[in-house]
Design a protein around this nucleic acid. Sequence first.
DNA 1: GCATGAATTGGATATTTATGCGCTATATAC
DNA 2: GTATATAGCGCATAAATATCCAATTCATGC
Lengths: 156, 156
Amino acid sequence: MRQRHNRLTVVKELIKSNRIDNQDTLLEMLKTEGYSVTQATLSRDLKMLKVGKISDGWSGYYYALPDNDLISESEKSYIQDVRRGILSIEFSGNFGVIKTRPGHANSVGIALDVLALPEILGTLAGDDTIFVILREGMNKEDLQDSFKTRIPEIEE
Amino acid sequence: MRQRHNRLTVVKELIKSNRIDNQDTLLEMLKTEGYSVTQATLSRDLKMLKVGKISDGWSGYYYALPDNDLISESEKSYIQDVRRGILSIEFSGNFGVIKTRPGHANSVGIALDVLALPEILGTLAGDDTIFVILREGMNKEDLQDSFKTRIPEIEE
DNA sequence: GCATGAATTGGATATTTATGCGCTATATAC
DNA sequence: GTATATAGCGCATAAATATCCAATTCATGC
């Protein structure tokens, strides 16, 4: 059952080296690679890989990996900064207040800026407190989800 | 009948300056711009514009123009500077005051100079404040429009 | 005038993709 | 051990997007 990770790698490879324009085709390819799943699962895989569908410049579309596919080393270190410094987050309406260990607000704030979470419009750091301005339409839960995915565990 | 060309221009603008993730939303926007068409037509328009649908980096997808239609990389980074730094704009007559995050006024000011918005005659940056002088004949609304188009995702 | 053809569109429908729900396997806590 | 949680998945179906076909408009040639 726990074959998703391997499969994602294969999907990534297939997308990188072929012009694929629909999920059924990709399903076939996966099958010949030994991964037999349904379209539903594949759809979820593609979302997980952040795969986009872009024009081939003429009349068709094909799947493509995001430019920024891998987590860079520097990004990893920023994630570490966040994990080292952060103590708590609380919200009030469109704003959040992050408490950090003393002196860590700045490094956490910079890290958050660099990570460019889609929910965050901007941050303002003091010594042990960061003021977070959420983007319009985003809420506390959105940001917490984002945190959960981007910060705690680093894949690969 | 011959309104496709104009409509395509509007569609392009809308896509460039908003995060749109489905055609119905875009249809609504088009309607408020005075273009009343069906989803079928819009689908054809998007194909004609070679619009792609790409990941926003986390859980969503949005429409995007192909690379060669996009602004240059360097311009992007200046736009990022503005987005990262700017907090608010207020006007008084021919002058505007932009508040930025501390220490960001300079980078925002430089970015505004480089972007060379036609409404701006000149800027003067302190630490967290920028003084903007509008060109004669231009007003607050002109600049806000320009901002909206050139620097997506600033929610006033 | 009329015939012809290309371009554009909407309605209906086909195709493609996303997701709610429930099941199972594995992990975690007690 | 048992209870509880959670990830991963398929099925069925919803939602989103593309396309077939017929109708309309405008241009052009006769």
